[in-house]
């Protein structure tokens, strides 16, 4: 017997007010036990997709199923089985963090004993111990945000839906949180549906990533495959000793055939050159430096990042219009 998909989305479309196309015929499937990322720029349609999956916004056309339940007809069955962290903050401003969490847990039918077990296990992970008895309105944005995320770990759920949950967390908190998510999926066989605009986060966390742009899914695969599929080019990083040679180098590169794209770093005399034929490029550059008797600081070849995939894909789409 085939396992039901955690989420299956078919031609899902949302048009706001008859004119804003937020999600445009999106189709994808999320397997149970998977960490699935929806990656896209601001306004790409991530939050709208989540609101439709969480059944608080109804689709204009198309359909989706969550754990086999229809989002248009069986909303309550879905909502009983998911936990959602919205992108925007939501909190009880007049309560202490502890009271608010306890109330939230009781809404989900978690009894007092279970609640105190869970809160004790979570509070350190989210570094909220010190502020637990403080009124929420006095907490910092980052603390409120962690509280909001922690809340969804208090109750049982089969799918966690997280809409840019790390916004407002610092680097360490962010990394700790991503690791916590990975651990959680492994331990409890739950599924995570995760949206972000931060490419490195998706690359680090997700088993598979769908890239959404102007409401359309333009690519879907594991981060590794995406990189293989969409970037046959590699990047050559050239670090110069100072700015003086930069202008000349840029001019030469402009005249070269096999340079796909180049990016001049802001504060350092460093230039990143994407090329289909990086070895020839390195050879050509070495010859150039030699003939000019110019000594470079370093020259190296790097693997493409998922970021290159996005820039490539989205850059293409913006240049050629919508494919």
């Amino acid at each position: 017997m085939q396992e039901i998909d955690a989420i299956s989305v078919e031609d899902l479309t949302k048009i706001y007010a008859g004119k804003v196309v937020a999600v445009d015929h999106a189709s994808f499937r999320v397997k149970q036990g998977e960490i699935f990322g929806l990656l896209g720029l601001n306004g790409a349609g991530k939050s709208t997709t989540i609101k439709m999956l969480a059944t608080i916004v109804s689709p204009t056309s198309g359909n989706a199923r969550v754990l086999g339940y229809d989002i248009s007809k069986e909303g309550l069955e879905i909502r009983k089985r998911i936990g959602v962290v919205q992108q925007l903050e939501s909190y009880d401003r007049n309560l202490t963090a502890r009271t608010s969490l306890a109330l939230y847990a009781s809404l989900w039918g978690v009894d007092k004993k279970e609640f105190s077990n869970r809160i004790n296990a979570l509070i350190d992970k989210f570094e909220l111990g010190e502020v637990l008895d403080r009124k929420i309105r006095w907490l910092s944005y980052g603390q409120r945000r962690r509280l909001q995320v922690l809340r969804e770990f208090l109750h049982d759920c089969e799918i966690l839906i997280l809409d840019e949950p790390t916004v407002g967390m610092d680097v360490l908190a962010r990394r700790a949180f991503l690791d916590f998510c990975k651990e959680r999926v492994k331990g409890e066989k739950s599924t995570i549906f995760y949206t972000t605009h931060i490419v490195s986060e998706a690359e680090y966390l997700c088993d598979r990533v769908a890239i959404i742009h102007h409401g359309k899914i333009i690519a879907l695969d594991s981060p590794k495959e995406l990189k293989k599929k969409y970037t046959d080019a590699k990047t050559v990083c050239v670090v110069l000793k100072d700015d003086s040679y930069l202008t000349k180098l840029v001019k030469v590169l402009d005249g070269m055939q096999n340079v796909t794209r180049k990016e001049i770093m802001e504060d350092t005399p460093e230039i990143h050159i994407v090329s289909q034929d990086p070895f020839k490029l390195i050879y050509d550059l070495s010859s150039l430096f030699q003939s000019d008797s110019y000594e470079v600081e370093s020259m190296s070849l790097t693997e493409p990042s998922l970021e290159d995939v996005i820039v490539g894909l989205v850059g293409d789409q913006t240049n050629n219009g919508v494919k």
Binding site: T55, L76, R79, K80, L88, S90, R93, N94, L107, W108
Partner: peptide, 18 residues
């Protein structure tokens, strides 16, 4: 007013309630 403005309204509607 508070539930709407501090978005607990949405949060509750995404939970096991109608």
């Amino acid at each position: 007013w508070f539930d709407r403005n501090f978005r607990m309204f949405e949060q509750i509607l995404m939970g096991p309630f109608t």
